[in-house]
Every structure is written in structure tokens, then in C-alpha cells.
């Protein structure tokens, strides 16, 4: 099964709609609740990151019997230092993002914790693609 969603820069009003939709689908499919939780937490973190930092993007989710693969691809600005971004507490979030309750520098580490595989490809000025896999078996 394949699902895709668009991400609009700074649109916090709709933030979480993609993750919410995926959550409903996984529940409907009877996926184990623990796997649903880590899937949607990882996707939600990535969704928030893209809304907060990028200039727009797209989410693609593929679900099969064995795994869930989620790709969040955005346009710019890219991550200049990925090692720093993976550190808990390191953040470049704006005050507006922090007022929303995010931007504490926990997003990428939390995605790593909740997924079985995480790949981040990023080019400054071009964009970032985050590929997250949750194994179901």
C-alpha cells in the first residue's frame, strides 16, 4: 500500500495530519499497537521537522506485510552538520517553533530510537531526505 502527503512550510495548523492518517490505516490493518506507536512517533517527528525547517516537501509511506518504509523528502535548506543534528538537545528551531512545544533538539534522536533503520541524505541549499523503516516481523 502506498500513501503520499504534501508538506507545506510553516503550516503547523495541519501538522500531524499525515501521521494521523497513517495511524488510522495501521490500526485498520491490525498492526501491533507497539509498532503503530513507534511508526507514528517517528513519522510525526519527521513531519514536524520538515514543517519547521524546510521550504516544503513530500511524505511517501509504503506498507507491506513485513515492514513500513517512510520517506520524508524536503526542499532546502539542508542540514549543515548531521552529527550535531543527531545529538540530543542540539537545535536550530525558531522561537515560533519552540512556542508550539517543539524544537528541543530531540526529533532526530527520537526517530532513530523508534525505527529499525534510519537514513538521512542531506545537501545544504538543496534539501533533506529522511528514510525510516519499521520492521513488523
Amino acid at each position: 500500500m502506498h500513501y503520499s502527503f504534501d508538506i507545506e512550510r510553516g503550516n503547523f495548523a495541519d501538522a500531524g495530519q499525515a501521521s494521523s492518517s497513517v495511524k488510522r490505516t495501521l490500526k485498520h490493518l491490525g498492526v501491533d499497537p507497539a509498532n503503530i506507536k513507534r511508526t507514528v512517533v517517528a513519522l510525526f517527528e519527521a513531519e514536524i521537522n520538515a514543517i519547521a525547517h524546510a521550504y516544503g516537501g513530500r511524505i511517501d509511506v509504503d506498507i507491506d506485510d513485513g515492514k513500513i518504509v517512510m520517506v520524508v523528502a524536503d526542499q532546502g535548506p539542508g542540514i549543515p552538520n548531521l552529527d550535531l543534528a543527531m545529538q540530543e538537545g542540539w537545535s536550530t528551531a525558531s522561537p515560533q517553533v519552540r512556542e508550539m512545544g517543539y524544537g528541543a533538539g530531540m526529533g532526530l534522536p527520537n526517530i532513530k530510537k523508534n525505527t529499525d533503520d534510519l537514513k538521512i541524505e542531506t545537501t545544504v541549499g538543496v534539501g533533506t531526505t529522511v528514510t525510516m523503516t519499521v520492521n513488523l516481523t
Binding site: 503547523f12 501521521s19 508550539m100 528541543a104 527520537n110
Partner: peptide, 27 residues
């Protein structure tokens, strides 16, 4: 801080917060 809420298991838990917006609900 919703980022911290997302880090823990919230089974049988009440979240106490002063953050009152849609992101509180989505989180």
C-alpha cells in the same frame, strides 16, 4: 515541551500541560 512527551510511553498516563493548542492534541 511536546518533544519530550513523544519520548516516553504514556500508557495509563495523564499529561499535565500549560501548552494549549492543536499540537498538544496531535502529540
Amino acid at each position: 515541551l511536546m518533544s519530550d512527551v513523544l519520548r516516553y510511553s504514556m500508557d495509563e498516563t495523564v499529561l499535565i500541560t500549560g501548552l494549549c493548542n492543536n499540537q498538544t492534541m496531535r502529540t
